[in-house]
Design a protein around this nucleic acid. Structure first.
Lengths: 114, 114
DNA sequence: TATCGTTATATCTTATCAAATATAGCGACA
DNA sequence: TGTCGCTATATTTGATAAGATATAACGATA
């Protein structure tokens, strides 16, 4: 059997994307670097795109996910809120469980044919 | 809770997409109409795109999924093979199960917060 | 053998999205 | 008070995907 099953999950709020794999990766990079611009750089993403993603995320989430500061020591920065960390953890847990579930489902089907 | 979880699954063969929701919808339309061009029309898709999808599908699948004929009564046509029908059924079963699984997973997380 | 609706394919144009560029403003700190 | 790296935002350019258009070939049927 050479077939592989893949998946992509995301969370929506009011029919708009709130959180998907890309935003989760960005959130994790923000947590590691403490800055939106550095996070964007490590993900080889434009600052603008990173900012847009976080802006949409914050405006649609029920509580702030990322807090930012301008100026001051180091020029400013960005960091996750506790709520943001919870969201990331929940997303990654569900995503991992989904992969395992789908692998099982695929094996079930393999008993039959293909 | 206003958050909703969504998903998209697909099957790959040799790191190329074999079957996803779009192609499954196309296959079902082919089965209903007996023709690639009519199927494309009902899905508001260009014939070219439909043909490309089916061409990729047939060339990557282990067995033919769609058979076509040119000329003759009605000008020709397209129909699913038994193998194609099995693929469609397997995909839709897995997809439906995945949705249910994710809804459950989401509820588990809701016990905690959000 | 002319007609018809289909498959099959190439080419060109358009639209959409991503990327690049530019610029303003901020506040700690030296 | 000048510098620095960062956030925040608009605008322009470029690349890639999608769409439109055109055309050939095919075989049953009348």
């Amino acid at each position: 059997m050479k077939y592989k099953i893949k998946s992509r999950i995301w969370i929506e709020a009011d029919d708009n994307i709130l959180l998907g794999e890309g935003r989760v990766a960005l959130l994790k990079a923000i947590e590691e670097t403490g800055s939106l611009s550095k996070a964007a750089k490590t993900l080889k993403m434009s600052y603008k795109k990173a900012w847009s993603l976080i802006d949409a995320l914050n405006s649609r989430a029920q509580k702030p996910v990322v807090t930012t500061s301008i100026g001051g020591k180091g020029g400013g920065g960005a960091e996750l809120t506790d709520y943001g960390r919870k969201l990331v953890n929940a997303f990654e847990t569900i995503n991992k469980n989904c992969w395992e579930f789908l692998d099982q489902e695929m094996k079930k089907q393999l008993y039959h044919d293909f």
